[in-house]
């Protein structure tokens, strides 16, 4: 009699395997789609390398100096805004680069791979 139970449980386990695999594959698909969406968003943004940002920053600062030579307070505020913008754009540029084109800082990994992993491998 017991082996009938055992066979039923084995059959149930096989069904569970198939259903669970489907769920996990769907999950992997949605994770992949998320990565691709993120990449697409990056591509849609105006692409500026670190060099481009520096050049643009210099151009803007020169323009501010020339136009607001008589208003030190406004010039200072605008300079601050432009420098902050520059930092953000350079950081964004660095963030989208993989470790291959992004140099390590102090010998430390600046773009680490997934840490020790939540896997049963």
């Amino acid at each position: 009699m017991w082996w009938l139970f055992a066979l039923a449980v084995l059959a149930l386990l096989i069904v569970v395997f198939v259903l669970a695999k489907r769920e996990l594959v769907t999950e992997a698909d949605s994770e992949r789609d998320e990565v691709l969406r993120e990449k697409e968003n990056w591509n849609r943004h105006k692409y500026m390398s670190a060099g481009d940002v520096t050049r643009e920053t210099e151009r803007l600062l020169k323009a501010v100096d020339a136009r607001f030579a008589d208003d030190a307070s406004l010039r200072e505020s605008l300079t601050e805004v432009i420098e902050e913008w520059s930092e953000v754009r350079i950081q964004a540029f660095q963030d989208r680069r993989s470790w291959v084109r992004r140099l390590d800082e102090n010998g430390k990994d600046s773009n680490p791979p997934p840490e020790s992993g939540e896997h049963f491998s």
Binding site: L24, V25, A28, V35
Partner: peptide, 20 residues
């Protein structure tokens, strides 16, 4: 066989270069 076979398989899959 599957994209979720190992963690490395899933990572390679997330590149967008592969399909199931």
């Amino acid at each position: 066989w599957l994209v979720i076979g190992t963690p490395a398989s899933s990572i390679a899959y997330s590149s967008g270069l592969l399909t199931s």
